[in-house]
Design a protein around this nucleic acid. Structure first.
Lengths: 193, 193
DNA sequence: TACATCTACCTAAAGGCTTTAGGTAGATGA
DNA sequence: TCATCTACCTAAAGCCTTTAGGTAGATGTA
């Protein structure tokens, strides 16, 4: 009796990510993950440091997956195509994996963040921008604006912020991409005021 | 002995909001609020339905406060001035009251959301847009884009997403406002693809 | 003023999640 | 075959939420 469950950090993190997608990232709990493996919660401590550790690892997983998708989508595209592809990767990922996407917004400590796929995301965003010709000094600003708009949009949409109003969000999404493309093609000079 | 503490829903919600600002919205707990009034947690149930109720009320409070500030800031301004004023209200509020701002992203059920200051925010954003002349059919799209960008920016900045990279975030913020202003003045026609 | 009522806050208790300490049995290797 | 290792277990403490039922201080009325 007492067969071993064959757990591993990998397995637990994947189960945690699935749980996040089903129940929401904020409801990810060691107890629930343990339950899914028919194991006591205390047993997870052989594989995970603690609850925060699990959340961190789910975040890292989501960041990787998202970066992989982005890399695929960006391959061979540039300009507006690349922008739209990147944008759609974020939105689609958030829809397919809401919990994982939410994990993406979990605050990592600086060391962990630096070692995550975060920097890869930044590099890909920069790559998209190279399809537009921005003054070099503006590139970081544009990276941030792009990140903010895309993440902001996806978060609001996921959070239901756009429900109850008339035009469907699909239309707004494509107008948002139009707008961003247009903005990057006509990047304004700093305003003096 | 056993003097009454003189609690009220109002008082508790305000204390909860302060706690959110100090410890983070996700750490708001009935127990901690009770502790701050030297009262047992069970006693709060005379004033609050439950923990979720407290969070909901903190959200409503934050939404009100934010709308009040926005209304003040917008008074007498239009065009780029109004845009900048609205943007700064969000950012400043988030910096002064990170927990309250985070509460703002808490998902309300549809009925509560409709009765909240949320619609007031939408109306104010529309008011800002009237300083630009967008085709009427585009207004909702622009409202959403503006909301997404502003909230996205503030969230990323608050979440530390902009740390560790060179240009300071103040510069990016003003470039973001420039960019939004420029975008609204040159709103693109729908792209055909 | 005296009395009745009301209700704000209390204690008790159950149930859930986290985390630590220490045990046991199944897996692994010599 | 035996020794070791370690994955998973039980026990227990601590904290949070929520419900049930009590008590005393506040309030209103005669």
């Amino acid at each position: 009796m007492m067969a071993r469950a064959g757990l591993s950090t990998e397995l637990l993190v994947r189960a945690g990510a699935d749980l996040a997608d089903e129940a929401g990232f904020e409801h990810v709990t060691l107890s629930e993950v343990a339950r899914r493996f028919d194991v006591k919660a205390a047993s997870l401590y052989s594989h995970l440091k603690n609850s925060h550790d699990l959340k961190t690892r789910i975040t890292l997983l989501a960041l990787e997956e998202l970066a992989d998708r982005a890399a695929d989508a960006l391959a061979g595209r540039s300009g507006r195509d690349a922008l739209a592809a990147l944008a759609n990767v974020y939105r689609d990922y958030a829809r397919e994996h809401p919990g994982r996407y939410a994990a993406t917004r979990f605050r990592l400590d600086p060391g962990t963040a630096a070692a995550s796929a975060g920097p890869r995301h930044a590099r890909m965003t920069r790559a998209v921008l190279r399809g537009y010709d921005l003054p070099e000094a503006e590139e970081t600003h544009a990276v941030r604006l792009l990140g903010a708009t895309l993440h902001g949009y996806v978060s609001l949409e996921m959070g239901g912020g756009f429900d109850h109003s008339a035009p469907d969000t699909g239309a707004t999404w494509s107008r948002t991409i139009d707008a961003l493309d247009s903005l990057l093609r006509n990047w304004p000079a700093p305003d003096h005021h």
